[in-house]
Design a protein around this nucleic acid. Sequence first.
DNA 1: GTCTATAGTTCGATAGAC
DNA 2: GTCTATCGAACTATAGAC
Lengths: 225, 225
Amino acid sequence: MAARAIGAGKVTTKEEILDAAETLFAARGFEGASMRAIAEAAGVAQALLHYHYRTKEGLFEAMFLRRSGAINRIRLARLDVMSARGRPSVEDIVEALLRPTIEAGHDPSGGGGRFASLILAVSTAEGEWQKGLVARSYDPMAERFIDALMGALPGLDRANATWGYLFIVGAALTQMAPTGRADRLSAGAASDVDSDAMLARAVIFAAAGLRALAADTAAEHGHSH
Amino acid sequence: MAARAIGAGKVTTKEEILDAAETLFAARGFEGASMRAIAEAAGVAQALLHYHYRTKEGLFEAMFLRRSGAINRIRLARLDVMSARGRPSVEDIVEALLRPTIEAGHDPSGGGGRFASLILAVSTAEGEWQKGLVARSYDPMAERFIDALMGALPGLDRANATWGYLFIVGAALTQMAPTGRADRLSAGAASDVDSDAMLARAVIFAAAGLRALAADTAAEHGHSH
DNA sequence: GTCTATAGTTCGATAGAC
DNA sequence: GTCTATCGAACTATAGAC
């Protein structure tokens, strides 16, 4: 039925503009997507984009915060539910972290699985406003998940929990964009279209990696003290 | 003395253009970096870029293939040396895969640690010529490392070895770009400026993740047959 | 809130002198 | 091989009618 995953009520013009912006920014990058092309994709005049979002930068920020906010609310809600039931496992935490972004990719209104590319582009950009956007959007959520990882793995210190968190997000995000590389390199045995299979592997991979980092931390502390 | 890491002889104008292109493309992306800005950074007239590389796309390809070729030659040479001495460990394979890209980041002539962002941008771009560029540059090397991983971990099938390879590359590449996120999220306990510390963690994380994927493969085959 | 029209800038690429 | 000068197209953003 393809119900909208963001916003409950009627689809406004402002949201249609954000949808078009998300698709085009994800496909062509910030500089590669023009206001003209976004306006055309949204079926409105170009001047309307400036009326609603002032500048191209403003439009990008609004688009980015809408999607990242929706994803992070789901992530934290799942973490809260799990924590209320007792101490969650590493696997549960990793799944709560990764699955909402994958499911956002299934949302037909949005970038169609390409929001992951957008996050990567923004986080590696050099512009100050883009670094700030990443920090505002993701740091509070990231800190909560890093804390949760330390809670699930006694012996994992903050440095290793942070590395682990960043490794997991980097590993998963780079596989969410539909590049076709998995299919080609595995001769069809793995497919980046099958995001559920990817997620299952990522959880196994990440949980084992985190446990190894925790064991290494404990070993080092044992040696030096 | 900051000797050049690419090319042995005198620094030609063509190479100076490639150096400037690498820095600017990495910092601002393909559309964000203009031929004007690259020419100015290289200290030559803009028309000279077109004389040597025909189009902006041609310049980008030449720049990308120079650096990726240099990195991949080192990777494969290390893998060959290790393989000649016996069966290399998972840790050795992962280190041979990741360290050359980190060391390319130390090369003062190049993108200064930002070539990693460039690889991420190209691999997640939608353009056909960019996907083709990634395939030509990296697939043959990737296949050799996937084979090596399967050789080091009996029980790891091709699908899991491919996922593992892609997870490792994605996890490491996203941490090589100097975003400052590690410092901020860990309150200074981890730093993305210290690439050696990052590499040590990445090797531990990746090796454990791969072993877990191998164990899972074996368990599945045991169940279903 | 939405449109048409356009100002002002920057872009990739080429012509042609040296 | 390197330069200056410039063309034509595309860009962001705004003015002003409805």
